[in-house]
Write a protein that binds this DNA or RNA. Sequence first.
DNA 1: CTAGGGTTAG
Length: 547
Amino acid sequence: MSFSRYAFSKSRLFLVPSSPLSFALNLNFSSHSPNPSNIHDALASFNRLLLLRPLPSVFEFAKILGAIVKMKQYRTAISLSSRAQSKSITPSLVFLNILINSYSHLGQMYFAFSVLGKILKMGHQPNTITLNTLMKGLCHNKMVGEALSFHDELVAKGFLFNEVSYGTLINGLCKAGKTRIAIDVLPRIERQGIKPDIVMYNTIIDGLCKDGLITDARDLCSEMIELGISPDIFTYSSLIHGFCSMGGWKEAYELLNEMFRKDINPNVYTFTILVDAFCKEGRIIEAQAVFATMMKCDKKPNVVTFNALMDGYCLRNNVNVSREVFNKMVKNGLAPDVISYSVLINGYCKNKMIDKAMDIFKEMHRRNLVPNTITYTSLIDALCKSGKISQAQNFIYEMHDRGHLPNIITYSTLLDALFKRQHFDEATTLFKKIVNLGIQPDVYTYTILIDGLCKGGRLNYARQVFQQLLMEGYRLNVQSYTCMISGLCKEGFVDEAMTLLSKMEENGCLPNLVTIETILRGLLEKNDNDKAKKFLLEMTDRGLFRK
DNA sequence: CTAGGGTTAG
């Protein structure tokens, strides 16, 4: 795909959204801060500049725009830039680069590229920052392939990229789940005389950790060290995160000690990773201890830290304490975000306190926070589970209206609800609808489907789906296999269930206690007591009852 | 005054 049509598009396409009312002339002549640190000061400075005669240079305007973008107020940056331009400020390259960044953050890549068009039309030469910003925008908006073609197109025209360019592309690839391709980038850029640096290595190390390939991540880290690049706080945070999420507490602890030895002090990221990891294991006491240590080290917890802790309490069904943590965060001067509210809503929902959840939902509206697909999904799940299907349906409509479309998790929730309420035909129809919408079912969806079909007396249909998935080599998990095994046992096909048990192990999926119990029960129900005894002994010998 | 890496929710 070529981007030339973006780059050379007519400037009439350069439409700017209308200015938000929020900054209706905030003229504050007394505050004379050259580096505004809050949005009101920034707006005031900008307005002041616009009133000066002669008009200050574009440099001054770009400086404020840069500060506004650092505060993530992209819409404001865009509005201000169009106001400056309407007052006959001629935008500089830096000014326009900032604008590209703002559009990219808002997901408006078409406008971002029309700014590139404007740059060319004005006779500016786009610099590496311009192009890197565009590539980053494409990557963040799920267009990594386009970012790569854009890069190739420019290389073909003789443009030279730098370390930041490749750091951007590598990150885009990793975040798109294409870590292997990201790794292949390293030798390729070396041939162009660009040295892989610590950012690129850290990005890939993090990607490998997230793929569960912690050994590969460690190997890559060693490779980096051999090249004379020492791991930094980013490297350690990613590796510690990787180990924690796989239960490798010993290794995580060793890495932490290694950090201390090297005088690399944990920061808010490192601490939050630990708080979160302990919370997810249900070890809330340890999470609290990390939190306390963090304060002692004079590292301030941020919203993310508080959110992780709140979720930890919710996971232990302690939604009231979670709410206290929420209040504590506010007392600490932090502003709860969409995730804080979603965690609380989910906590109340899981405890069947839907009214409380709805109160929080309204409160978040009052704070001008916009619920997203995840927030809605929690509510929909709770409503379905308590039989309030029409209310759940209303939320689905609301999601569409607000542009937060249901995703596979939302649909899986609905599918589960329909099966649990034994609306088998509606459930089957919904599954077909999901596929028709082009939404890829995940392993949870398939498990819900197979389980629902089995329990709905449609074993043959379930079998068919399962066979299909096995043939496609789809990575099913222990729950999926166990559902199918359970369905087979219930209809008396215990031999087939045992064949499937071998099959799952062949496919590298170990049975758990539920799987074994299911088969055992199947055998006993058929009065195959000898077989049951033999099976039990075999499983005991293999140590499958430990843990 | 502008560009790349690590933390949270269903």
